[in-house]
Structure formats: structure tokens, C-alpha cells
Amino acid sequence: MNASALAFSPRRVGAMMLRHWYLLRSSWPRLFELIYWPAVQMFMWGFLQLGVARYPGALAATVSTFLAAFLLWDILFRGQIGYSMSFLEEMWSRNMPNLMISPLRATEFVLALVIMSMVRLSIGLVPVTMLAIVFFGFNLWALGIALAAFFANLLFTSWSVGMFCSGLVLRHGLGAESLAWSLMFFFLPLTCVYYPVSTLPEWIQPLAWALPPTAVFEGMRALLIEHVFRADLMLWALALNLVWLAAGATSFLWLLGAAKRSGSLLQIGE
């Protein structure tokens, strides 16, 4: 890759964000969809929490951590979907060759998708966290600095997975689209969203600890159950995320190169 490929222009990043902002602004179903699923799931977990709150002891406390776990899982899932959806919009509209022959660099394209992922996530999750306060008295924002650490680490993971999925779609066409929707669920059991890592069989625990979200969910439980902020877990997640982001970016660039070698950028569709 030569120097001109690395030249960076905020204007071009802005152009891509503007393109997606125009799209969101013009389509209320897209905006509604951003809020719909997080809201439905939050109400489901919230009512479950209310239901078990009648019972004394550990059960009620456990379910309240479920609500936090769900909201954090949704950050991870929606972050990746937000990234992938913006990318897929270009595939669905058959606009990708127009972008690929423009001066837009791969780094600028990825950065625009990352920012749009945050925009989409904010549109979806901010109102839902407010509803959680109003209906169930659960204030995710009260987690303060810990929430920022959880949020950042989960988003970093979601973007690295989003980059990998986008690369697969570039290389294999829209036939690989379903991976963008389902790949994250592979991590659901392994990252121990709703139970401690110690629940897993011992032989699989090292694999779970190699996934950055595992440390985030363990950190969340430590904060809610033991009232301890585990900075060591956040640093571990951050270190892993740096490796994951590098791997995600490398895989995207490699798959883009593979798409050029296979000619799939000319064959838009399945």
C-alpha cells in the first residue's frame, strides 16, 4: 500500500456520513427499527425482573443483573449491526462500485461506518435506557465511568466483527449477508453474558477469556453484585480489543483485495 492510499480526508468521511444521514432522515421505518428491538427486549427483561422481585433472596438480584447484561449485550450486538447495516445499504443499492472508483480510501470508509454505528446505536439505545429508568427504575447511566469502559470495549469488539463481516460480503456477495446478522450470536454463549465464566467447562474457559466481551460481562457482574469496579478486567478487554481491531481491519483489507482478485466487485448481488 503506498502513501496516497493512506492519505486521509475528513471531508470524504463526512460525505459518507452525510449519505447515511440523508438515508435515515428519509426513512422512518429505518429509524423505528433502531428503537423497536432494544425496546421490546428491555420490556421483556424488565417485566421479568418485576416478576421475580416478589421473591426474596438471590433470585431477584440475579435477574436485575440480567437486565444490565441484556442492555450491554445489546450495545455489542447493535454496534455490529449498525456497522454492518450501513455497509449493506451500499450493497443493496448497488452503489459499491461508485464508491470504490471514487477517491474514498478504505480507512475513510471504515471510519464513516464506525461513526454511523455509534449514531445508530445512540438513536436506538438512549431512548431505551430512558424507558428503563421510567418503567423499571433501572438507571444504566448510574454505572458512570464503568459504563464508559464497558461501552467502549463492547463497541471496539462490535466494529472488529463488523469489519470482518463486511469483508466477507465484499468477497462473497450478498449470499454472505446472513453472517452479518448471525455471527455475533456465536459469541453469546462463549462471552458469558448471563452467567459467570466459571460456569463453563474448564477446557473452554481460556477461549472465553480470549473474547474481549467476556471481561466486560464479568466486570459488570463484579460491579453489580460485589460493588467492585474491576479495572484489570477492562484493561484486559482493551488489550484484546486492540488485537481484535487490528485483526478486523486486516481481514477487511485482505478480503477487499481478494474481491478485486476474484472480480466480485463487478458482480454485485448474490
Binding site: R11, A15, L18, Y22, S26, E90, S93, N95, P97
Partner: peptide, 23 residues
Amino acid sequence: PYVDLPHRLTVRQNLNVFALLYG
């Protein structure tokens, strides 16, 4: 004809995005 522009964006919005991309 085998490549398209985003359908939901107006003609002006599409041209504005590409004008920005090309500086």
C-alpha cells in the same frame, strides 16, 4: 446501467455526496 445510486436519496443529495467525495 448495472451500477446504481442510493434510491432513497434525492438526485441533489446523491450529487452532493459524490461532489464531496471528489472534493
